[in-house]
């Protein structure tokens, strides 16, 4: 359908021959617009276009953004060596290092943590997030990472092996925090309370696999009593 004024000022004799190209031109224009515009959700490797810049990007540091001003490209400056923020001295050896005052590995939860259902539940979910990929949800050292890509060399430890049974609770906390053998430290990935919760869950897994249900409850209760006395 042509607009009235186009039809009106087209010479009568040229009308038949010029109408078709105009129509075609219009169709081509629509096709070009559609091609240039594309449809919503079309995949693209090009970053989103901000048609209205609108202060979308401001001179402001966001986490993990680059700062071109400093040589190390960080927004935050690293505190000087040895500086300690207020309240972050972490001088509680039991809580932060899993050790007693004499330096031996502690065999109880730090006094600030209480062994209860909540802590064990927390330990279970955290274990399944951070440990199960290698050690497996049951702790047998057969997580999904061991079954792909040629497996892990050396394989992750089976948490039910005899050698680990008598180890104190602090040992597991220590290994999670600092790594052991080829296992790397999880200190940065898991907050300290969660590491204790995981250690408690590891102990729970071990006991669930080595004793009768009735006997399993007793040491857990004893651990709770131990944890309550500093």
């Amino acid at each position: 359908m042509l607009p009235a004024f186009v039809m009106a000022h087209t010479p009568r004799n040229a009308r038949v021959s010029s109408e078709a190209p105009t129509l075609r031109l219009g169709l081509v224009a629509v096709a070009i617009a559609a091609l240039a515009g594309g449809c919503r959700g079309t995949r693209s490797e090009d970053p989103p276009v901000h048609l209205n810049p609108n202060m979308d990007f401001q001179e402001r540091g966001e986490p993990q953004e680059e700062n071109p001003f400093f040589a190390d490209k960080r927004w935050m400056r690293k505190p000087p060596e040895g500086a300690v923020a207020v309240g972050l001295l972490k001088d509680d050896d039991h809580l932060y290092r899993g050790r007693n005052l004499d330096g031996t590995l502690a065999d109880a939860l730090p006094p600030s943590l209480k062994l209860d259902e909540k802590l064990l539940g927390r330990g279970e979910t955290r274990f399944n997030i951070y440990c199960a990929p290698c050690h497996g949800a049951s702790g047998h050292g057969n997580g999904p990472a061991t079954r792909r890509g040629g497996g892990m060399q050396p394989p992750p430890a089976d948490l039910h092996m005899k050698r680990l049974g008598p180890e104190p609770l602090g040992f597991f906390f220590h290994v999670i925090s600092n790594g052991k053998g080829k296992m790397r430290s999880y200190k940065a990935q898991i907050p300290v309370e969660d590491r204790w919760a995981i250690a408690a869950w590891v102990r729970t897994l071990q006991q669930s696999h080595s004793t009768t249900p009735v006997a399993a409850a007793a040491p857990a209760a004893a651990g709770a009593a131990k944890g309550a006395t500093p």
Binding site: R40, G41, E45, P47, P48, V49
Partner: peptide, 12 residues
């Protein structure tokens, strides 16, 4: 002009 067009499908 909607982010449904400009942003959805961004796959760098």
């Amino acid at each position: 002009f909607s982010p449904s067009y400009t942003d959805v499908g961004y796959r760098p």
